[in-house]
């Protein structure tokens, strides 16, 4: 994506940049934590390893992005301070990422919808005016392309597999579709970031996401659900009940021993 000429562009404040970076960071962190729950419990050894790889990539992205957010913020918080010492209302991940795993099909559908969004977002962010963010995004886009291949591949196999697998994934699509509204509808911060040349224009991401997901659903012989408006906005800190439990598990150990290193 070609960004506007720097001189004519409005400049985002540090607070805005930090907030936007946290949206990306927390989405990767929370999704990675969810996928890591599968290790040792997957439907086959190969799936344990693949889900573990994706979790590693996502947490790796989160570490880079959290560190960047901490530097932008300038208050000395590092990746762990941000991951372990913020409460749910301070998390900025999209609500889709925090949804519980459910069965393997449910996890695959969640990942598909999210992978497509992360892939298109990071691919566009590779041209961001924020060069540090752009560097992280280049690497993340490559990883997310692999994640998408994995999740979309399984979506198709499950959708076009047996009657039972078809039923299970179509229920998961129905369940999770409402969380896609948040991915695709820009709020004031998304719009501001696009104006400043930091984030891609939401309309472009939306179009590519819709094409990508529609094609996968078609191949999986699953109907594309109608648009559902959903008022939940994790990216503004208004989360579902699931996030509190996820964070209780993630954060309890360092919080029980403040001030030590591990």
């Amino acid at each position: 994506m070609s960004m506007a000429i720097a001189a004519e562009r409005p400049q985002a404040t540090a607070e805005e940049r930090c907030e936007y970076t946290l949206r990306l960071a927390d989405t990767s962190l929370v999704a990675g934590q969810r996928l890591a729950e599968w290790l040792g419990h997957g439907p086959a050894l190969e799936e344990d390893l693949a889900l573990g790889n994706i979790a590693l990539d996502l947490i790796g992205q989160a570490r880079l992005l959290l560190a960047l957010a901490g530097r932008i913020e300038g208050r000395g918080r590092d990746e762990d301070a941000l991951a372990f010492w913020r409460d749910a209302a301070q998390f900025r991940n999209v609500s889709l990422a925090e949804q519980p795993n459910g069965d393997f099909g449910h996890t695959i559908v969640r990942q598909c919808l999210l992978d497509a969004w992360q892939l298109e977002t990071y691919a566009s962010l590779a041209g961001s005016a924020d060069t540090e963010l752009a560097d992280i995004a280049k690497k993340a886009a490559k990883e997310c392309r692999y994640h998408w291949r994995y999740s979309a591949g399984w979506l198709v196999r499950l959708g076009d597999g047996t009657e039972e697998s078809h039923r299970r994934v179509s229920e998961a699509v129905q369940d999770l579709w409402r969380f896609t509204d948040e991915l695709l509808t820009p709020d004031a911060l998304d719009a501001r970031m696009a104006e400043c040349g930091i984030a891609p224009p939401a309309a472009a991401v939306r179009e590519r996401w819709e094409q990508r997901v529609a094609a996968a659903l078609r191949e999986a012989k699953l109907p594309c659900p109608v648009h559902q408006h959903y008022p939940w906005h994790g990216k503004r800190g208004v989360h579902t009940e699931a996030l509190g439990h996820l964070l209780a598990t993630l954060q309890h150990l360092p919080r029980a021993h403040p001030g030590v290193s591990w």
Binding site: A36, G52, L56, I59, D80, A83, H252
Partner: peptide
């Protein structure tokens, strides 16, 4: 899911994966 730092979490995931 309870590793006390992100570095430790990544190391542990990679280890469990190695065992698989």
């Amino acid at each position: 899911t309870r590793a006390p730092s992100l570095r430790r979490k990544v190391v542990l995931i990679a280890k469990v994966q190695d065992e698989g």
